[in-house]
């Protein structure tokens, strides 16, 4: 499988990374090299193998239903590029 420039643009769009024409041209062979290289996994016989879900056998612990956090608005907003009236502000979305 290899990608073309349209696919590169599509992936960049999905990943929300602006790419110039030049960057697309540069990325194209790089991505295809990497994808071609990882392609070798296709030759591994994985019949009957379950995909790995937990690296080390470990059980999911569950938290008690207690309010132990939140109410830290200042911390939450402390690093915001733009915050107004207790909200994060982003370019206006027209719905």
């Amino acid at each position: 499988m290899s990608v073309d420039t349209a696919t590169v643009r599509h992936i960049a769009r999905l990943a929300r990374i602006a790419v110039s024409d030049g960057e697309v041209e540069a990325l194209l062979p790089e991505l295809n090299n990497i994808l071609g290289w990882v392609e070798q996994l296709q030759e591994v016989d994985v019949a009957g193998v379950e995909p790995m879900t937990a690296v080390i056998p470990n059980r999911q612990r569950l938290r008690a239903d207690e309010v132990s956090d939140g109410a830290i608005r200042e911390q939450v907003l402390a690093n915001a590029p733009v915050a107004e009236h207790g909200f994060f502000a982003v370019p206006k979305v027209i719905e």
Partner: peptide, 20 residues
């Protein structure tokens, strides 16, 4: 996260670092 689910709080007053 351990932040409250109560309805009607001030904006971003029931947000943990996890939620943000």
């Amino acid at each position: 996260s351990g932040a409250s689910t109560e309805f009607g709080a001030e904006p971003n007053a029931q947000v943990s670092l996890v939620d943000a």
